[in-house]
Write a protein that binds this DNA or RNA. Structure first.
Length: 728
DNA sequence: TCTTGTCCGGTTTTT
DNA sequence: CCGGACAAGA
């Protein structure tokens, strides 16, 4: 016990040993968050306050869940089975597999990843003859997911115009299609689980009495539905305050690191949680064990510019360390050249390449840097590309496997019915689609492609489809009792995938990936479950690491978003320019700049010993040279902690108007009425609509109109002469 | 039905 | 500028 709690600082200790009540732990970057979470679980068990079966620990990424499990098994000499540790989606999947009947799902239900979902929606819209100019599939997808993430079914969505009604109709049709095909998308995993718990009292009470301790990692990233789900599991009721009988939720999060609002995360959940669960135990972990003082000072000073924080200040006893280095270059190419020389120097000084990270706001920025690293022969690894299970050839193989498990999965059917080519084109598939829409009493929603084949009028197409069905059935029978690895091997041969890629000139790499799939299957061991289903779930839920060239000591390139949770000895934050970081699109969203600033905060706090910030005066973007001014975030970091590597005076950035250029500059769009001081991106307050941000403007002075995004209150055009707007 | 050209659009990402 | 998505020829 004392061993368990040894070496915790005062706040960590307090958090770990809190009494059995809900608590919110504000854990700053590098403050030992994971350690507190895992030690808390171990402590609850060791002191006899909980059994493993009483624990539910939920994270956002598989990586975090694995890390937690690994650390726990190092701490506890007991079997961790019975404890539910996993991602929101993973846990919901587990729940739905166990209660698929109550949830109205087939035992073999398949999980659609985002790409599958998009193609399912495309197929649906095509079948409904929807004009995809007016309703682009991507937007329909965002609409559906946005509503599911908020816990809303089609009947809950209000639509006040024709356009809105149409989208709700598509949402409803999409849900019907998924139901018929026996597939669920990511958001559905959560929503289905939530709804089942809501309506089934027996199940709800069972899980409520089981999970006495619910622990949540990265709480600031939860969306509306995830929070509702947690409340339900905790027995906290849906409205208002939780009763005293509610289970304890131990939430760990950092509002300053909330960078996923764009995908539905709601920081406000932290405040709601405090209120709903009468949180008396708010503990701040502010001692940072990662970075030197100057780096933390920069981070603290920057994030102070955000309003609406829960408030937190990182400190360290590791000393000031080195100043933050700043480099200004003429062009993006110069920036890359400087990066290379600096990296070479660091390596020459004995730094490991894998301890050097190059961060950027958007992935497109990596190209220039990559090219130069490649030319110089410096090993590097880019994160954020295609992942293993997202590769086309792997998805094809998976589609065949899914059809073995569930032939009604139309997305998979459509994907491979003509791959490799079997003379079944778009025309034939359309015919089949028509046949599948046939409704009768037995099948009010229509039937799947697979089942529609016998309904086709005799002809060439009907024969081709029948042959394909036979192929699938044949493979299913032949592989029925084989181990997973041999199932896949059989499918690769009999589907013709292997032969297809063998014949292709550049198919070598794809073949290797298919073999890699067999390897993955061979290493995949799942105890008491149907191994094929388990493997398919694994493929959907854990897309697999990016092209990991394991073992190679390489410089790390990634977007700021993907750097969250990681740390490096030396960090370069590149492209610190207005329009790029902060990104220009962010100015059009409510609180957009604040989220960009949190992003910058995340970036800064990745660095242990040395932090570099760089920006370029001109940058090639979309084939055009853009002239940007340096990022406002640079101005928000106090000068005394900075060390400029380039001279500051004579900089062309003395003022935008003094700009001297040989080419005609293309400024970032900034039209605003006259000199009134209104500008795009400005935050404003309106008596009726509340807080908003200016997105567009026309006219000038008192004749001008401003377009303002008021978030949930909509986007409005306001005439300056009438509307009373305050700058915030 | 499969290959070649043109057009468009272009943050961030996990599950 | 560069890749993906779709429309016209072999």
């Amino acid at each position: 016990m004392s061993e368990l709690l040894a070496n915790l600082n005062q706040e960590q200790f307090a958090a770990v040993t809190l009494p059995n009540q809900s608590a919110l732990i504000l854990a700053g970057a590098g403050s030992g968050k994971t350690r507190v979470l895992t030690t808390r679980i171990a402590w609850l068990i060791q002191t006899g306050q909980a059994t493993p079966a009483n624990i539910l620990a939920v994270t956002f990424t598989n990586k975090a869940a694995k890390e937690m499990t690994a650390r726990l098994s190092a701490m506890l000499p007991i079997n961790l089975r019975g404890m539910w540790i996993g991602t929101f989606h993973g846990l919901c999947n587990r729940f739905l597999r166990a209660h698929h009947q109550d949830a109205g799902l087939p035992a073999m239900f398949q999980i659609l990843d985002s790409a599958d979902q998009l193609s399912a929606i495309k197929r649906l819209l095509k079948a409904l003859n929807v004009d995809d100019e007016k309703h682009p599939p991507k937007e329909v997808m965002y609409f559906i997911n946005g509503n599911k993430d908020a816990g809303l079914r089609p009947q809950h969505v209000e639509a006040d115009d024709e356009f809105g009604r149409k989208r709700v109709e598509y949402y409803r049709a999409y849900d019907e299609q998924c139901q018929r095909e026996g597939v669920v998308d990511f958001a559905e995993l959560l929503l289905r689980t939530y709804e089942l718990l809501l309506k089934n009292e027996l199940l709800r009470e069972h899980y409520q009495s089981r999970f006495k301790h619910i622990l949540v990692d990265e709480f600031q990233d939860t969306n509306v539905l995830q929070y509702k789900w947690l409340k339900l599991l905790a027995g906290a009721g849906l409205q208002g305050a939780a009763p005293a009988t509610a289970n304890a939720i131990f939430a760990v999060g950092d509002d300053d690191q909330s960078i996923y609002a764009f995908r539905g995360a709601r920081v406000g959940n932290m405040l709601d949680f405090e209120r709903d669960f009468h949180v008396q135990n708010l503990i701040k972990l502010e001692q940072n064990y990662r970075s030197h003082g100057h780096i933390l000072d920069a981070a603290n000073a920057l994030i102070k510019n955000n309003a609406q924080r829960l408030g937190k200040n990182l400190w360290t006893d590791a000393g000031h360390g080195e100043p933050v280095r700043v480099f200004e270059s003429q062009t993006d190419l110069d920036e890359a050249r400087w990066l290379i020389s600096e990296i070479k120097a660091l390596i020459a000084d004995g730094s490991k390449r894998s301890e050097i990270a190059l961060l950027y706001r958007s992935n497109a920025q990596s190209r220039v840097i990559e090219q130069m690293l490649f030319a110089e022969g410096i090993p590097y690894k880019v994160y954020g590309g295609l992942r293993f299970f997202e590769r086309a050839e792997v998805k094809h193989a998976i589609a065949y496997l899914r059809l073995l498990a569930n032939p009604d999965d139309d997305t998979s059917y459509a994907r491979v019915v003509n791959f490799p080519a079997r003379g079944i084109g778009a025309r034939s598939l359309e015919q089949l689609n028509d046949a599948a829409k046939t409704r009768d009493m037995a099948n009010p929603a229509g039937i799947s492609f697979y089942r529609a084949v016998p309904l086709l009028p005799q002809g060439k197409a009907a024969q081709s489809f029948a042959a394909f069905n036979k192929l699938i059935d044949g493979m299913r029978e032949a592989t029925q009792h084989l181990p997973l690895k041999e199932i896949i091997d059989h499918v690769l041969d009999h589907s013709g995938l292997r032969a297809h890629y063998k014949a292709e000139r550049e198919g070598q790499e794809r073949l290797e990936n298919l073999n890699e799939l067999i390897n993955a299957a061979a290493n995949f061991t799942q105890e008491d479950e149907d191994s094929l289903i388990a493997f398919l779930t694994h493929a959907s839920l854990e897309a697999g690491d990016n092209q990991a060239e394991a073992g190679q000591d390489a410089v790390q390139l990634m977007s700021v978003h993907s750097s969250k949770g990681l740390e490096f000895n030396q960090v370069f934050i590149t492209g610190l320019e207005e329009g790029l970081f902060p990104h220009e699109n962010s100015t059009k969203e409510l609180d957009g700049i604040d989220e960009e600033r949190r992003l910058m905060y995340v970036a800064i706090t990745r660095a242990r010993h040395r932090l570099y910030l760089s920006f370029a005066q001109t940058r090639m973007l979309h084939g055009q040279t853009r002239y940007n001014s340096k990022s406002q975030f640079l101005n928000e970091i106090p000068e005394q902690g900075l060390k400029w590597l380039t001279p500051r005076f004579g900089s062309v950035w003395a003022g935008d108007d003094d700009f001297v250029a040989t080419e005609k500059p293309t400024y970032a769009k900034s039209k605003a009425p006259g000199d009134s001081g209104w500008r795009i991106g400005q935050n404003v307050l309106h008596a009726k609509f509340g807080n908003g941000v200016i997105v567009d403007a026309e006219g000038s002075g008192q004749d001008g109109r401003l377009q303002v995004n008021f978030g949930r209150n909509g986007v409005k055009w306001l005439a300056l002469a009438y509307a009373k707007l305050e700058k915030v």
